Measured scan of single mutants.
Amino acid sequence: MTYRVRIENADGEVVTIEISADELREKGLTLEELLPPNARIVEVEEVEP
């Protein structure tokens, strides 16, 4: 499974990243732990691999 994640950074700019569930598991991280300081998740969407 892959996630498309929209993130708002500290400057108010919204960027989109895609990350797979396998990648998260391998790194032992959650989506929140990948965020840079002062950023927030705006939207998470599951996409087909």
Rank of each mutant, 00 (worst) to 15 (best):
D22R: 11
P49Q: 13
L35A: 05
I19A: 01
P36Q: 04
P49S: 13
R25W: 09
G28T: 02
Y3E: 10
V15Q: 10
V44S: 02
D11L: 11
L35P: 02
E48Q: 14
L34S: 06
G12Y: 02
L29H: 04
A39T: 14
L24K: 01
E43R: 09
T2H: 15
I7W: 14
D11V: 07
E45P: 01
P49M: 13
V47E: 03
E43Q: 13
A10N: 07
V5I: 13
V44E: 01
E48W: 15
L31W: 06
R6Q: 11
P36T: 04
E45W: 12
L31V: 04
R40I: 09
D11S: 09
E32S: 10
D22W: 10
L34M: 12
V44I: 14
N9I: 13
V15M: 12
E43Y: 14
P49A: 13
E33R: 04
Y3R: 02
E45Q: 12
V44Q: 02
I17V: 09
I17M: 09
E8K: 09
I19F: 08
V47I: 14
L29E: 02
A21L: 10
A10D: 11
A39W: 15
E13A: 09
R6N: 04
E48N: 14
E48T: 14
N9P: 01
L24M: 12
R6E: 05
L24C: 04
K27S: 12
S20A: 08
N38W: 10
E8T: 08
E8I: 15
V14P: 03
Y3C: 10
E45A: 08
E32C: 11
V5T: 00
I17G: 00
E23G: 03
D11Q: 13
L24I: 07
L35I: 14
L24W: 04
L35E: 00
V47Y: 13
P49G: 13
P36Y: 03
R4E: 05
E23A: 08
E45K: 10
R4V: 13
E33I: 05
A21V: 10
A39Q: 03
V42W: 05
L29R: 06
L35F: 06
G12Q: 02
S20Y: 06
E45C: 10
L31A: 01
V44F: 07
R6A: 07
D11W: 12
E23D: 08
R25F: 11
E23H: 08
E18G: 02
L29A: 06
V42N: 01
E46K: 11
G12K: 03
T2F: 15
V47D: 03
E48M: 15
E33G: 08
